[in-house]
């Protein structure tokens, strides 16, 4: 392994301790009990409690903090500022940097961004670009930085990142067509779909779905679906996730208006 000359180097390799309780067999079939409740007493189409707080980082032009169950992340937006590296463009450029903190996941992550984080950055970028009026900011750069403080499910981090980023862009005064609300879910055995999976549920999923929408226009800006699912289940899952984004949208609006009163 390479030595990182800009950091204090610890052991070349380390493995986290194995906790004895983890040897107990997992009750994988008991995701939903007979009352159609999940382990945390949710229905299949219910999201976890959500908390959004805009404008908490004074140095940033816009910022937002979001909690979605165990998922916690902070977004800061800088810009529009001068574009010094990229080529000339008559409209603005948007960049996104998504990073899990080293302490965010069960397994400790490194300081350098890995491929998963880069992929998530691209997905968040693709979800936000249609909603922003970039033509109003020629030759400028808008930077979004997302730090995950706790990972309560990777797909929910992606969805929460999109939601919090649009709140942060709005508080930065960037002109937008609409806020972007995002929602995620997972596919399980027997063509079941559960909305907003947490970390435990994610271990047993056979596929997942993440959708980002602009609810005012009832249009989607981005959709990711992975896994082998039949068509009817896919349609129903899509409708459930889209309904969930409308609920998240009203929470976003409420939080933005509350901070002005």
């Amino acid at each position: 392994m390479n030595m990182d000359r800009k950091r204090i180097n610890g052991p070349e390799m380390s493995v986290r301790p194995v906790i004895e309780a983890e040897f107990q067999p997992q009750l994988s079939n008991v995701l939903i009990d007979s009352n159609l409740q999940r382990k945390d007493n949710r229905n299949s189409d219910q999201i976890r409690p959500i908390f959004i707080k805009p404008n908490l980082i004074p140095q940033a032009n816009g910022s937002a903090y979001i909690e979605l169950g165990d998922t916690k992340l902070v977004v800061s937006v800088f810009g529009p500022r001068q574009n010094k590296r990229m080529a000339f463009s008559p409209s603005g450029q948007l960049t996104c940097e998504f990073k899990f903190s080293t302490f965010a996941c069960e397994q400790r992550r490194g300081h350098i961004r890995d491929n998963e984080e880069k992929d998530i950055s691209q997905l968040i970028l693709a979800a936000l670009v249609p909603a922003i009026k970039l033509e109003n900011y020629p030759k400028s750069l808008i930077d979004i930085y997302i730090t995950v403080l706790e990972n309560g499910g990777t797909q929910s981090c992606l969805a929460a990142g999109i939601t919090a980023s649009s709140v942060a862009l709005a508080t930065a005064g960037i002109e937008m067509l609409d806020l972007v609300a995002a929602s995620s879910g997972g596919f399980f055995e027997n063509n079941k779909f559960l909305l907003d999976c947490n970390r435990e549920e994610e271990r047993f999923q056979q596929g997942y779905l993440v959708i980002a929408t602009m609810p005012s226009f009832k249009s989607s800006t981005h959709l990711v679906q992975v896994g082998d699912v039949d068509l009817n289940t896919s349609k129903q899952a899509l409708e459930t996730a889209v309904d969930s984004t409308y609920n998240i949208y009203s929470i976003m609006n409420l939080c933005l208006k509350q901070q002005l009163e």
């Binding site: 002109e175 609409d178 806020l179 609810p215 005012s216 609006n253």
Partner: peptide
């Protein structure tokens, strides 16, 4: 009245567009 991006404000036949608004 406090509005957020994406809020419809009125018909385009009734208003002219000013700053911070757009027609769709």
């Amino acid at each position: 009245e406090i509005v957020t991006p994406g809020t419809p404000l009125g018909y385009k036949t009734e208003f002219q567009v000013g700053e911070g608004t757009y027609i769709r």
